[in-house]
């Protein structure tokens, strides 16, 4: 018998693992639901914000915010990368990093330097060699704008002072609980989705001054985009973990079944052998 005891202890340890993965799956499922709610709740704000910024881009304003001006030469670009703090969520982070690296490699090919700002411990570890200028980790499952502002400001200041000429956001898009899509979007200069074609020249009335209002609006716009990205990333993390843990539990189940079969076969073989030994012994008497 091929070590019945060993097989038994292996089964035991795998079923313990299965219990853990099962529990993680259920936790991730309930956290995902909450993260999805948060994501939905903040979406109207982001949508309206985008609409207002679209209007801004379509109008002829007396004051042009630096974030709306395209710079002619690009010498250095910034990346904000959203990742999770913890692993065990399938290929979520790896896929995202690949996407980010591809995009970064394109810039480097053209001789453009890259500054990186990361959210989440996984990205902080992965991009350590690439020169991180700002990072923020362990924001928890409900990220708050207040926690992120400082880190974002580093990049925004770099843009305003001309150290970087473009700023990108790399994050996972939550398509549904089975699919998450890594994507790179340009934050600044603001790519205006000018909805209506410019038919006549108009400008806003401003209260107080145009600069003050537009500055406040732009700051909120960038914050809302990044906040939305962070919330969405949490939903993605939970969804990916749920799927990964489900397949881990399923794999543990099949492994346990296989091992049980081997164990039973070995047990039966041992019994058969014992019986035949007894019979042989008895007939010899």
């Amino acid at each position: 018998m091929a070590g019945g005891k060993e097989i038994l202890s292996q089964i035991k340890s795998i079923s313990n693992t299965k219990k853990i993965t099962k529990a993680m799956e259920m936790v991730a499922a309930s956290k995902m639901r909450r993260a999805q709610d948060r994501m939905k709740a903040s979406r109207p704000y982001a949508d309206k914000m985008r609409q207002v910024i679209g209007h801004l881009a379509a109008g002829h304003l007396e004051y042009n915010h630096p974030y709306t001006q395209e710079r002619e030469t690009v010498k250095r670009v910034g990346y904000i990368i959203m990742s999770s703090d913890r692993g065990l969520c399938g290929g979520l982070n790896v896929n995202l990093f690949k996407q980010a690296l591809r995009s970064i490699a394109d810039w480097k090919k053209e001789g453009v330097e890259v500054d990186i700002c990361v959210f989440g411990a996984k990205a902080a570890a992965a991009f350590r060699r690439y020169g991180i200028v700002a990072q923020k980790t362990h924001m928890g499952d409900a990220p708050k704008v207040a926690d992120m502002i400082g880190t974002i400001k580093v990049m925004l200041d770099a843009y305003e002072e001309g150290r970087i000429d473009r700023l990108f956001l790399v994050e996972n898009e939550f398509v549904n609980s089975m699919t998450q899509k890594p994507q790179v979007t340009q934050l600044i200069p603001v790519v205006a989705s000018s909805v209506d074609s410019i038919k006549h020249h108009w400008d806003y009335l401003y209260e107080p001054e145009s600069k003050e209002v537009i500055d406040a609006l732009m700051q909120r716009y960038i914050e809302s985009l990044i906040y939305q990205g962070a919330v969405e990333n949490v939903a993605c993390e939970m969804a990916a973990r749920m799927v990964a843990m489900k397949s881990a539990s399923d794999n543990a189940g099949t492994m346990i079944d296989d091992l049980k079969l081997i164990y039973n076969k070995a047990r039966q073989a041992a019994i058969t052998q014992e019986i035949s030994e007894i019979v042989a012994g008895a007939s010899a008497v």
Partner: peptide, 19 residues
Amino acid sequence: PGAMGDLGIMPRHSQLISK
């Protein structure tokens, strides 16, 4: 409640942006 005082807005108000 505009930053510089209350704003009353009726239909067809011209474009305005305010804190």
